[in-house]
Design a protein around this nucleic acid. Structure first.
Length: 239
DNA sequence: TCATTAAATTGTT
DNA sequence: AACAATTTAATGA
């Protein structure tokens, strides 16, 4: 893993969003004019380099975060001091609403796997939107529901022994159009990065991807993967 | 714009 | 883990 940079660097280089970046935020379009103005005023974006922390366990919640570009990983340290990776967060993904709702401290670490652009909405504005916007409430509720499904699926994935299926299911999660609308057809992820997320060697991931490509579920591209059949990824069974 | 070189990523053992 | 092959990015004329 890359060296750990101090996380303040992420907060020093914040700036307002460009129109293009705003457009990439899925929930912004659900707001009324007045709500949208308030959200836009508060939204900030920052560049994160590989290894940078977006948030750390135990820190008080200050922002609700979303990935505009790049790839983050969500992880925690267990009692044995080992790092356990929960999931990757590709473009379009917003996270931390659970802790933001309760104004608690972050319960996981979020680190950039690659150079990324991360947007942040202050937790006070997050609450204001919850109090004023029906569209925003729908988005958050839908998000929570969809993620619950993902965590159940993740438990299943953990119990799977077949690496090919693990890779397939993990990929299907990253291609989730509800949680990660910014991904689209092409997920920008290297085989090394995917290996980190799934917990397999790059070689084994390479082999699994070749297998999935042979089935026509995906197409392997340089620096990314194109989904051809999402259902095939989800329903992956022993061959 | 094109050719050359370096860096990143993939494929294979 | 190591190495070769391939693809992209960077450089400079």
């Amino acid at each position: 893993m890359a060296t750990v940079n101090n996380e303040s660097s992420l907060h020093q280089r914040r700036r307002p969003l460009t129109d293009q970046e705003l457009d990439a935020i899925p929930w912004i379009h659900l707001l009324e004019v007045r709500e949208r103005e308030r959200a836009q005023d508060d939204l900030r974006i920052a560049d994160a380099s590989p290894g940078d922390y977006v948030c750390r366990i135990g820190r008080p919640v200050t922002y609700w975060f979303g990935v505009v570009d790049g790839l983050l990983k969500m992880s925690t340290d267990n009692a044995q001091g080992q790092t356990m990776t929960f999931t990757g967060v590709p473009p379009g993904g917003w996270f931390g609403e659970g802790t933001a709702l309760k104004r608690e401290t972050y319960r996981y670490n979020i680190q950039a796997l690659r150079k990324s652009r991360v947007a942040g909405l202050h937790v006070d504005t997050f609450h204001w939107l919850l109090d004023h916007s029906i569209g925003f409430n729908r988005f958050v509720m839908n998000q929570l529901n969809e993620r619950l499904g993902q965590f159940i699926a993740a438990r299943e994935i953990d119990r799977l022994t077949n690496p090919d299926i693990r890779v397939a299911r993990s990929l299907a999660a990253l291609f989730n159009p509800v949680l990660y609308p910014g991904v689209g057809e092409l997920l920008q992820i290297t085989q090394q990065e995917l290996a980190y997320l799934v917990g397999l060697s790059r070689q084994r991931v390479n082999q699994a991807l070749a297998h999935l490509a042979a089935q026509g579920a995906i197409r392997i591209e340089y620096g990314g993967l194109r989904v051809l059949n999402l259902q095939a990824l989800r329903n992956q069974i022993f061959i």
